[in-house]
């Protein structure tokens, strides 16, 4: 019974939070609700005894959304509402709704047609982390390493993009002017 209560509480919280993300006009509300929603999702992992994934959900999304806040801080006055300029409201809403229904249909179809079974069922008395590690470093080693390489490429690209004007920080310019 407690599991059911927890499940429905978290469901309502998550849906409510993501609703705020979409419908609010204030950047601060949206970002905070996004962070809240992401953290509440970890509740489902804890309910399913997947503590490791639950904690990873919290750790990863706190950091990630923290970076989104950084951008929000730079681009908006977060204490004011943003003037949205939406044309063709009807088309946007219809398309959004249709694509949402379509996605749900695609995802749920295999669940209804075949009884879904775990490809690699959880082994008793083996911890969460050990199970994740076993699968990552045996069955899914190649995708895992590819993802790592992609992240490395993205990181180097980011450094190269910033590096171009690294020498021209405000203090350096002032020092150069003073020197002349």
């Amino acid at each position: 019974m407690f599991e059911a209560i927890a499940f429905y509480t978290f469901s309502i919280l998550v849906i409510g939070m993501f609703g705020i993300v979409v419908f609010s006009k204030n950047a601060l509300y949206s970002m905070s609700a996004l962070a809240g929603g992401m953290i509440f999702i970890s509740g489902f992992f804890f309910l399913l005894d997947a503590e490791f994934l639950g904690v990873v959900q919290i750790v990863v999304y706190t950091g990630a959304i923290m970076a989104v806040y950084g951008f929000g801080m730079m681009f908006f006055d977060t204490t004011r509402d943003i003037k949205e300029n939406i044309k063709f409201k009807k088309i946007i809403y219809t398309l959004a709704l249709l694509s949402a229904i379509f996605t749900i249909f695609i995802l749920m179809a295999p669940v209804y047609s075949v009884r879904v079974e775990a490809l690699y069922p959880a082994i008793k008395d083996v911890g969460n982390i050990q199970m994740v590690g076993l699968l990552l470093f045996t069955k899914y080693l190649v995708p895992f390493e590819l993802a790592a390489i992609m992240l490395l490429v993205a990181m180097i690209a980011g450094i190269v993009l910033v590096k171009v004007k690294m020498e021209e920080t405000p203090t350096n310019i002032e020092v150069a002017k003073g020197g002349k």
Partner: peptide, 23 residues
């Protein structure tokens, strides 16, 4: 099972306090 990670995760959520207050 993952007590240490949980503590560090919860503590990092704590930084939202100063951040939200500031914004």
């Amino acid at each position: 099972n993952v007590g240490l990670l949980f503590i560090m995760g919860a503590a990092s959520v704590g930084m939202y306090g100063p951040l939200l207050a500031g914004l």
